[in-house]
């Protein structure tokens, strides 16, 4: 199993990550500036005097040429300094803001991923093994339903049914994992489920397809001809090879996971990076939006990088 993953490959990937982070930051920076709105108005209000606005602009150096502003942001960001928020309490350090909220977002994201992977491993395997039978049709239909449900809509359905209706789960609010892990698992269940449902559906479908495709490959027939037990044939000859496309698709879907947290954090009142970014965008808090977007970007790239390493380990032909 132990295969050396070449250092050259890893370092060229890290170079790619750095380049993508730069391009992503630049895009967010210039798109934000190109849009309507002024952070001075957002902070000082509609009635602000021109003098107050000018003072605000001077303080945050918003009248400098954009390239200079970007360079200034970039040179301190590279050093790990994301500056101060324009809107939160008149200048709170952004690193602190993100640092306190990132664990909540990562927790909800990981929670959703665990739910989606567990459900899809089970449902995908069952529907492939019962191919064409009722169980398969039922699982596949539920999967189509899952893919078709937007997370914001599903969130409200879950709140209506499980929180307000049955009263099993809280409808709003979140206990951070740092405070109580069981509390976080309990209060985070509905938001994680809302994010996980469409992903679980997509994962189930790809696993079912990959399993069915592998199930009839020659090497599986050879394994059966040697008289191996069914479970051994399934795990080592079928599932093992179906995992490669399955893990690849999980990697591609990770970005939806983060997109999902942005929406779901707002609905369930979870103090995470997603909710922070939405508020920052409404307030035209340029440095805070920049920092949140970069956080998301790096998370996605990091997860994709890990997924690629897993895929390389799963597929000997890739090395």
């Amino acid at each position: 199993m132990a295969r050396a993953i070449s250092i050259g490959r890893v370092s060229s990937r890290l170079g790619g990550v750095a380049l993508l982070a730069l391009l992503g930051s630049a895009t967010v920076f210039f798109v934000m500036r190109a849009g309507q709105g002024d952070p001075a108005i957002a902070v000082l209000g509609d009635q602000a005097t021109p003098e107050a606005i000018a003072a605000f602009h001077k303080k945050w150096m918003l009248d400098d040429p954009l390239v200079i502003q970007f360079w200034r942001w970039l040179s301190s960001a590279v050093m790990g300094d994301f500056g101060l928020s324009m809107t939160v309490a008149g200048g709170t350090p952004i690193m602190g803001l993100i640092g306190s909220r990132l664990p909540n977002t990562l927790f909800i994201g990981a929670y959703a991923l665990v739910i989606a992977v567990s459900v899809s491993l089970f449902a995908g395997t069952i529907s492939a093994l019962r191919h064409g039978k009722f169980t398969d049709t039922a699982a596949t239909s539920i999967a189509v339903l899952g893919i078709s449900m937007p997370d914001f809509w599903l969130s409200y359905v879950l709140v209506y049914g499980l929180a307000l209706g049955l009263g099993v789960f809280p409808s709003y609010g979140f206990t951070p994992p740092a405070q109580s892990l069981t509390g976080a698992l309990y209060s985070g269940f509905l938001p994680a489920l809302a994010i996980a449902a469409p992903m679980a559906a997509a994962f189930t479908r790809i696993l079912r397809t990959a399993l069915l495709e592998t199930l009839y490959r020659d090497h599986v027939r050879v394994a059966r001809s040697l008289g191996y037990r069914d479970a051994f044939v399934f795990i080592h000859f079928v599932l093992r090879n179906a995992l490669i496309p399955y893990v690849t698709v999980i990697g591609l879907q990770i970005r939806y996971l983060l997109g999902g947290t942005v929406v779901v954090e707002r609905i369930f009142g979870i103090p995470g990076v997603g909710a922070l970014m939405v508020d920052a965008a409404f307030g035209r808090d340029y440095p805070l939006v920049q920092a949140c977007a970069l956080t998301f970007l790096l998370s996605v790239l990091l997860v994709n990088f890990v997924v690629d390493l897993i895929c390389a380990a799963l597929n000997p032909r890739q090395n």
Partner: peptide
């Protein structure tokens, strides 16, 4: 199967589990 009746197949490349 295997120990009493066994089979050798047409396509040796496809006969092996590519991951092992």
């Amino acid at each position: 199967r295997g120990v009493q009746l066994a089979m050798i197949f047409q396509d040796p490349v496809g006969s092996f589990n590519p991951a092992k």
